[in-house]
Design a protein around this nucleic acid. Structure first.
Length: 805
DNA sequence: GCCTTGTGTACAT
DNA sequence: TACACAAGGC
């Protein structure tokens, strides 16, 4: 439940970010948030006791994304119920039971839709479901830990001791526990809203001199929290008002004076004051498990005036062995029985071949594990940046000609799709659609890590200290220079362009000449991945059978789609071809990983380098699910100019064709003060990277996190800012609300746009759209007609000029 | 008019 | 679990 209205209350300090910016960091995740959302898709099956692992699949999509971004996830699960939350849990249980009864009634009456709604409302995440996810995560080398009590406190503790640098959750309570950085509402593309503890004082009315984090916590408790309902008529706004004017340090005394502060006749009983203190202590001293010391500890050390014996409402300590077994996930927290046997000393992840060498990337259960050194992520580097404000920089991207092999592939790809009808069918066929989604995921895994901006730290420890000195290929020009024509002769053709994506030879490619894929077991849907749960006492029984408690409901339910889950259970892996090392993405990436000093990336590439495609329940490959190459479209002939009339960046083709909103993706580079714009219209060779650097505050919903200088207006005129984009260009970082207001129509038209894209590109069979989610809702206008495609002619070099604001 | 409170709805596929 | 919205209290 959290603090009602807290997130909207903190809107001022919402910071749209992508989790990829925390590459190299550890991110602790409130696993139940994902489990709950994942369970939504299979609520009926779960309620009826049928076997499904859809919720695992859902969670693993997030996990895989983070692994592909070199982020170490740590999954944190809820443990035992706190006495403080007894009432909340009871109320939830009653609601679930009520909905179950309603569902049964609807099913008796033949009202399936209503029954489904009720079943969705009675989703209960069981310890068995958590174990299923834990087993899958561990096979991928992802750490899991079960909190002795609430995951929230455990997450905060991991953040506090430096194990995790960021927390991902949907629960606003995390802020009260004292987390430094919390990422809310993260989607599958890693976009979310970051709230930092250090900025909380910006939203409260408490004067900065009098601001204390304690006051923020008091304010939230006063407005009502899981441990204490609010006094009638007091919400966040009134609670904020109290702490704006209150100077009373003693919270008990302050609460007694509440009617005075609120100028009302509100009654504050002693019972409420005691409850308030208990709630506050629960936020402060709840038991958590320290995986490094392997023992239970309070979230914060007890001060002298607090007697731990009086904090039974904040949890009771367990014996050391039991505490460890709970933390390892071996104990069913409902029944208390041992239902798993995970041992970190002997466990070897199935799908991680190499152990990371960076100590903070090891398992938190590994004895050699060390927390990541606390280095300010950006601050040390911000001061050293060159000031490019008001400058226009010219960025050259190294563009290589297509290999003949690739051209052949495109032709073959084009021949696969014969007509608009076929494309339309592809889109609307459920199984094929899923295969297409898998294809999108593959593209993401395969290409995005490559696109990230990673300057060589050996050659440039302070990369941006002297941009032009360190990298002569970057030409910095003054704003007064109006000549947009670039003198190609004066540009030294770079051997290696640090702004460009990596060499195509190192890029994983789908190889049409590779042998047919071998049928392998799914990574995380292999049957053996759930064998432990089947063997255990808590198992829901054989597949297809309902558990006894659900038999009554199950007998009422006549499923129409009996075997949809099988689509997930059989996944084909494109086996690598040993004889074609150069074409083998797996080997390429391994080689690439081994070239890097941080071998932790090996496990990351291990995750991202495989291509999956779905097959049907019998294991037959879907013919339309083979990976596709990028489109032939090239951006190399476009220039980026500032147009005074719209105060925006526009793009013009060399043949004077103007295109708006060319940017498909904004990626935060690892370097501070730099944002990379990835122009993904073309294939990998023609991708161009433009660094934007600006001090201006956010416009059009594009925001750069605080350590970065703010955002540049990109492809959106000032008249259409406030998060709205005229042409539907995807702008990462829009708040949900502004997305709804501005792009809800875009979203509803998304499928039509995609269909249009198919239709448009199908006219030219050599041209195919990249089925990348970043491009789906782009290009609604006719800017990208096949005629605009072109290839670089200027010595494989493309030049973009960007005015730095 | 501000604020709280209750209700309805989406969440995933 | 959170958000949007409407109703109602102060």
């Amino acid at each position: 439940m959290g603090i009602q209205g807290l997130l909207p209350f903190l809107k001022k300090i919402h910071e749209p970010v992508n989790v990829a910016q925390f590459a190299g960091c550890t991110v602790a995740i409130d696993a139940y948030c994902w489990l709950h959302k994942g369970a939504f898709s299979c609520a009926e099956k779960l309620a009826l006791g049928e076997k499904t692992d859809q919720y695992v699949y859902y969670c693993m999509k997030y996990i895989n994304y983070m692994l592909s971004k070199n982020i170490k996830p740590v999954m944190v699960f809820d443990g035992c119920h706190l006495p403080s939350k007894k009432n909340v849990e009871k109320s939830r249980r009653e609601k679930r039971e009520l909905n179950k009864k309603k569902a049964a009634q609807f099913l008796r009456e033949g009202k399936r839709a209503e029954a489904r709604e009720c079943l969705q409302r009675c989703i209960d995440i069981t310890p068995e479901m958590a174990l299923e996810l834990m087993n899958t995560c561990r096979d991928r080398g992802v750490d899991c830990i079960v909190a002795p009590y609430e995951a929230d406190a455990q997450l905060a503790y991991l953040n506090k001791i430096g194990v995790a640098q960021v927390i991902i959750t949907e629960d606003s309570d995390l802020l009260l526990f004292g987390c430094e950085k919390v990422l809310f509402k993260m989607d599958h593309a890693g976009n979310g809203i970051l709230i930092e503890r250090k900025r909380l004082n910006e939203v409260t009315d408490i004067q900065s001199g009098h601001y204390l984090f304690d006051k923020f916590r008091y304010m939230c408790i006063l407005s009502g929290c899981d441990y204490l309902p609010s006094l009638s008529g007091i919400g966040l706004a009134r609670a904020n008002k109290v702490f704006k004017i209150a100077r009373q340090a003693d919270i008990k005394q302050l609460l007694k004076k509440l009617p005075t502060y609120l100028k009302s006749s509100i009654s504050v009983p002693q019972e409420y004051i005691d409850g308030f203190v208990a709630a506050n202590n629960t936020f402060l001293y709840q038991f958590v498990y320290d995986p490094l010391q392997r023992r239970l500890v309070p979230l914060n050390p007890y001060p002298q005036d607090v007697n731990p014996d009086e904090l039974s409402y904040a949890g009771s300590p367990f014996p050391a062995k039991k505490a460890l077994q709970i933390a390892l996930g071996n104990v069913n927290i409902y029944s208390g029985e041992i239902f798993a046997s995970f041992d970190p000393e002997t466990f070897v992840p199935k799908y991680v071949k190499k152990k990371p060498q960076m100590l903070h990337m090891l398992s938190i259960w590994d004895k050699n594990y060390r927390v990541k050194p606390r280095v300010p992520l950006h601050e040390t580097q911000v001061a050293d940046r060159p000031n490019l404000k008001g400058k226009e920089i010219t960025v050259k991207a190294n563009l290589k000609k297509r290999s003949p092999h690739k051209r052949v592939r495109e032709v073959e790809d084009a021949q696969e799709v014969k007509s608009n009808t076929e494309l339309y069918d592809m889109y609307h066929s459920p199984v094929k659609k899923r295969a297409r989604v898998a294809n999108i995921d593959r593209n993401d895994d395969e290409e995005k890590p490559e696109e990230e901006f990673k300057p060589d730290p050996k050659n440039s420890p302070r990369f941006f200290n002297s941009l032009s000195e360190a990298h002569p290929e970057v030409k910095v020009e003054s704003e007064n220079e109006t000549d947009n024509d670039v003198d190609q002769e004066n540009i030294v053709s770079p051997r290696r362009n640090i702004f460009a994506s990596k060499s195509p030879s190192k890029r994983p490619r789908f190889n049409l000449n590779a042998p047919k894929p071998k049928q392998l077991k799914s990574r995380f849907f292999a049957n053996n991945s759930i064998s432990k749960t089947e063997d255990s006492a808590f198992s829901k029984g054989e597949s297809g059978k309902s558990s006894p408690k659900n038999e009554g409901l199950s007998s009422l339910y006549k499923p129409v789609h009996s075997n949809t889950a099988n689509v997930y259970s059989s996944v084909t892996h494109h086996a690598s071809n040993d004889s074609e090392v150069a074409q083998d993405p797996k080997k390429d990436l391994e080689k690439q990983a081994s070239d890097e000093s941080d071998l932790s990336s090996v496990s990351i590439t291990e995750v991202s380098k495989h291509h999956f495609k779905f097959s049907d329940a019998k294991g037959n490959n879907s013919p339309k699910s083979s990976p596709k190459g990028g489109s032939a479209f090239k951006w190399s002939k476009f220039k980026f100019n500032r147009t005074s009339s719209t105060d925006s960046l526009s793009v013009s083709h060399k043949n004077s064709k103007e295109v708006k909103n060319p940017f498909k993706k904004v990626v935060y580079s690892n370097q501070p003060n730099r944002k990379q714009l990835m122009i993904k219209g073309g294939n990998s060779e023609s991708q161009t990277v433009v660094l934007i650097d600006s001090d201006e505050d956010s416009t059009c919903g594009l925001q750069i996190p605080a350590p970065f200088p703010r955002t540049e207006k990109i492809g959106v005129s000032s008249a259409t800012n406030k998060g709205k984009t005229k042409s539907g260009c995807r702008v990462s970082g829009l708040s949900k609300r502004s997305k709804k207001s501005s792009s809800s129509q875009d979203t509803s038209n998304k499928q039509h746009n995609l269909k249009d894209m198919f239709a448009k590109f199908a006219h030219n069979k050599s041209e195919k759209p990249r089925l990348n989610h970043d491009t789906i809702d782009c290009d609604k206008d006719d800017a990208f007609t096949p005629e605009t495609k072109s290839y670089p002619t200027s010595k494989n070099t493309s030049v973009q000029r960007v005015l730095m604001k």
